[in-house]
Design a protein around this nucleic acid. Structure first.
Lengths: 139, 139
DNA sequence: GCTGATGTATTAATATTATAGTACTGTGCC
DNA sequence: GGCACAGTACTATAATATTAATACATCAGC
């Protein structure tokens, strides 16, 4: 598949995997309902242990990004938040703060930051929200 | 001082400290040239080992956020980037991408993201760049 | 040069984490 | 029921990172 991990680079393998899957989902490369490769298959392909893949899958499931049906496989979840709007915006705010701290250290001007955000936001599908609303058959 | 850390919460103490200092600097609570508490003082106050504080200081120094004069103390650095403009913007882009992946997972709309960024950007001093240009006496 | 402030190096104990091996359980299909 | 595919639990080990104890080095002021 389209994943790539490098061991012994500080970042744990399962975290690298998680990030790539998260990005693939966020960018629409992986769509809700789509099946991910089996833990064994992916493990073989990346020359890592199936448990390491499993770990990545489990943590992502815990985050609600994907879901798993035992014996059948692992699938991309339909995005849905269990958070209140208030909490959702609070977390967004925290994330933005982290961005701005980082931008400060890069000595980026507010204009640059805004421009960068606008560009990427536009690039990621101009819709008002994300993908469709296909329900998946949870247990 | 104004720091607070909680051990045994997943995030290493020295990382917690780093984050708080980074934010304090970015938000202007700590200004360039200002002296930070000594490693011992801060360690005592937080009931942690001086070396833990030292570690945070060293990593931040490595990042160019603060600087240290042996035997004298640790101070907030004047922001300055050794990066090329291209590199600077590339990193900004990466940071923005991380924000958007996070926002996606929170199911925030592009409009919400933009609004949040605009609000915080405005809040952090409307200047075109950061603080002044006071030089500090590096070795 | 002594003193008291500072940061630092070295080393060791500890805790945590990452990874792997192996055996187990559930599902779909024949 | 048996098989082949899926994920999972359990255990062990290795690697790494975190924190601490302690002793050392530098600087300013006297």
């Amino acid at each position: 598949m389209w994943f790539r991990v490098e061991p012994g680079r500080g970042v744990p393998i399962y975290v690298q995997l998680m990030e790539q899957i998260r990005r693939a989902v966020a960018s629409g490369v992986l769509t809700p309902g789509e099946q991910l490769p089996s833990v064994r298959e992916l493990a073989l392909q990346l020359s890592i242990n199936p448990n390491t893949v499993s770990r990545a899958y489990q943590e992502l499931e815990h985050e609600g990004i994907i879901y798993t049906l035992r014996g059948r496989g692992t699938f991309v979840a339909t995005p849905s938040s269990t958070l209140t709007d208030r909490e959702r915006l609070r977390r967004l705010d925290e994330a933005v703060e982290r961005l701005l701290v980082e931008a400060y250290q890069l000595r980026c001007t507010p204009a640059e930051v805004l421009a960068a955000v606008k560009k990427k936001v536009a690039g990621m599908g101009g819709k008002d929200t994300q993908k469709g609303e296909i329900e998946h058959d949870d247990e």
